[in-house]
Amino acid sequence: MGYDWDFGFLVSRVKNGDETYLDWLLQGLFWTLCVALSAWLIALAIGIVVGSARTLRSRWVAGLAEAWVELLRNVPLLVQLLLGYFVVPELLPRELGLWVKQDMPPALTAIICLGLFTSARIAEQTRAGIEGLPAGQRQAALALGLTTTACYVIVLLPQALRRIMPTLTSEFMNIIKNSSVAFAIGVLELTFQARQMQEDSEHGLETYLVVTLLYVACALTANRGMAWIERRTRIPGYLGSSR
């Protein structure tokens, strides 16, 4: 395979503009991180609430939470993104819909959709974490006179979230990978830039290699970061850590 590898093209200018390809790449990295991290915050907040709701005694609340999870889990992320981009503005009141269509950055749509999609997955993990706790923990908290909310916030969730740190870690890495879908609505993240650079520069393989390595680097950083949090929050003598 006679292919001339040349990474020097990165510092050359793009065809129609003053930027270099490196600028595109850095811009892509910025938007990938921006979308993934913002969506992660939304996903955590909603996922923990919905996951907790699924373990409540109230049939009504638990059923609603289950519907949320099933709805978001059984439609492809890309389709959800396109629905959010093309359909939701039509359902909003006219003024708001017009603003969303014309002025709202597509990255915001991507952040919301990716956040909601991931919230369903975090909800399932949170539920599993809570259900994995001894039933007596809830009883003990209630017997002391804590309200249901306090019972979750102070007693159940701190334990459940520690238990699901390994799956949360892989979910965090997933959200970085999944943010790549945002290219479809024109967010200028890494995958969008990869496609654009490939067409513009005729250095497709180099482009993809660099972009792939950037994704791997992000995933590894995310993994180390979560491992650091996991170590910091470890309880002496509990869950396999040494005394």
């Binding site: 995958t191 990869a194 994704y215 791997v216």
Partner: peptide, 15 residues
């Protein structure tokens, strides 16, 4: 497992 599926799809299509 560490590369986004979209990138894998693009890789194969190009390579």
């Amino acid at each position: 497992r560490s590369i986004p599926l979209v990138m894998v799809i693009l890789w194969f299509f190009l390579a």
